[in-house]
Design a protein around this nucleic acid. Structure first.
Lengths: 333, 333
DNA sequence: GTCGCTCCTTTAAACGTTTAAATCGCGCGG
DNA sequence: CCGCGCGATTTAAACGTTTAAAGGAGCGAC
């Protein structure tokens, strides 16, 4: 109780040993005699001592935490990736902190500065600002997640291939007027998925969004429905599932049957995709694996830094077909 | 470039001033002459100096971060609360770290220990372990979120009232066989919502779940469908929306029409509730407000600690009625 | 009986800041 | 011309650990 101004000194005093011994009990329990160890441990309990990590880190140099800076914590995709990373971090005795940049570059920079000052062991990041990588080249190991870069290690999924998968699926189902929903185009994920799709279907149109949320998807849906029926696309490829869910919701609300009059493909295959009004066809990414791999890469980078060769690991996406694209019959020619 | 072993001393040397002046440039820019300030700032840039937060905190005593320990980061409810808290934290110049206990008491304790050692400015927590509150009475301000307690400040929503709202709605629509889906019962949220419901409908049955995820909801759905049709409930009240979505998904999969043969009420009214296969009736909690209020409480507690009177703020839930409970006609008597 | 080893423990310096107190330089009033 | 006061800067101690090096106690061997 009381304020915890109790330090290693107080413990040492109470246990009748030196501070070095207390430190050893904490860090090298094997080197200290069981008898004194117990004395010290009792003193620790009685005084309610809790180690001051700042002091420890200052002297010892190493931090016991990793951080993952995400674009949008409300997107289950990122929390699933985070869970994978957390597994690895825990196994290594490290804590993982989640930081939500919320797609705001300013917030992202603030977090990166904070983490740099805190000298965290390493940082995972899915950045909004492409330059955020080198900002941290200032000595802190960093791995890019779901995005590739020259400036450091990265773990990603082939987004061009993902876009291709989605577009080919729609084209094979007879769709000829397809719209791509996503944004901002400054996000490589958004660009690559678009590039992959346009490769299959050059006449792909596009509705840009400000962010990748359910609300943006709803707005995009409204825009599509504002088009004259003759020009209206028969299928939408959304840059992520949140957009797709919002888009789908707007279709349902306006009585447009999905997939009969509007097929929808999402991206990420989050758990909610399957539970949607019309279960979503979606491009699946190996979320947990992505997180685990990224964390492992980060840890090895932290060990071998500096003079470390950056590695780039890329996984392949998979198309999960569900009701939102099923059974579309192409209109007679 | 190179390792960033560059400290305040190196900056001082390069700028031709003392370390104290550098420190002042960093912390009290007003007290130092513009000329020297600029010299120092140039040196900082040239050397790529980044302040060592451990040392700062060790000497100055105060941390610049808050943390929010959540039950399940994959539940959008918590990330929405977190966003509210982050707003307040940012306004106060603090960073907010999210920690995911994932409903595992061991992980929760590890995080709390870590945060205590780190001497964070304060901790928000929605705990899995009821004793986690006093674990931190060791000097770190703590506010319980979405849960009330005697051991400290808390910000919550009246869950008993929420359960009552849900049950009354179902009963008024003529339902007589209602099942409550949720667990573990050690979670006060789960208990209170149940208590509120049973107050209205004493014959409420129950399907306990291990956690509150979509997958658990699916499993609960299977259990319900395994019952003989005569005993099968006509309505389910789920302890949160994730459960409700999983439950709904299982109904759809088995061809049970919702709400005609099974009405569903969820809890939290996350964004996905409205986008569900059948838009979910749900008990809404003021998520962002909850987070903002909790963070504000935490900050004032941090200022006035110790000898601080704990405050308990409680909000009221609201029933949002959607298709998943609409138009049910009670069977003829 | 003493020397030397081995183990355990202590001493003391160092980590990179902040900050109270001391110092310095300088202009101004007497 | 001297002393005073004020504002800018420096000195040096302190924060709570870790850790390399020094110290000491016990014990077996010669």
């Amino acid at each position: 109780m009381a304020t915890n101004s109790v330090g290693i000194k107080d413990v040492a005093l109470r246990a009748g040993v030196s501070t070095a011994t207390v430190s050893n009990v904490l860090n090298n329990p094997l080197v200290v005699t069981p008898a004194t160890r117990e004395k010290v441990e009792r003193a620790i309990d009685e005084l309610g001592y809790v180690r001051n990590e700042s002091a420890r880190q200052l002297r010892a140099g190493s931090s016991r935490t990793l951080a993952y800076v995400v674009l949008d914590a409300a997107n289950p995709f990122f929390t699933d990736v985070a869970r994978g990373a957390q597994e690895v971090a825990e196994a290594a005795g490290l804590g993982l902190f989640l930081c939500n940049s919320n797609q705001d570059p300013t917030v992202e920079h603030r977090y990166l500065d904070l983490l740099a000052e805190q000298r965290v062991r390493g940082v995972l990041i899915t950045p909004i600002d492409p330059d955020s990588a080198q900002l941290l080249t200032r000595g802190i190991p960093l791995v890019m997640v779901d995005r590739s870069t020259d400036a450091g290690c990265s773990v990603s999924v082939d987004d061009v291939a993902g876009g291709t998968l989605a577009a080919r699926h729609l084209v094979e189902h007879g769709h000829r007027r397809i719209v791509y929903v996503g944004g901002p185009m400054t996000l490589p994920q958004v660009r690559d998925r678009h590039d992959g799709a346009i490769r299959i279907h050059p006449s792909l149109t596009m509705i840009p969004t400000q962010a990748m949320t359910v609300a943006d998807g709803r707005r995009a849906g409204q825009q599509v429905l504002a088009l004259p029926a003759a020009e209206r696309p028969t299928a939408a490829f959304c840059a992520n599932d949140l957009l797709a869910l919002g888009f789908l919701q707007e279709m349902t609300r306006q009585g447009i049957p999905v997939p009969a009059e509007m097929a929808i493909v999402g991206y990420d295959d989050i758990d909610f995709a399957e539970a949607a009004a019309v279960p979503l066809t979606s491009v699946r990414q190996p979320r947990a694996l992505l997180g685990r791999t990224a964390a492992e890469l980060l840890l090895t980078e932290a060990e071998t830094t500096p003079h470390h060769v950056h590695r780039h690991i890329q996984f392949h996406p998979e198309l999960i077909i569900r009701a939102s694209t099923a059974g579309f019959a192409p209109p007679p020619p």
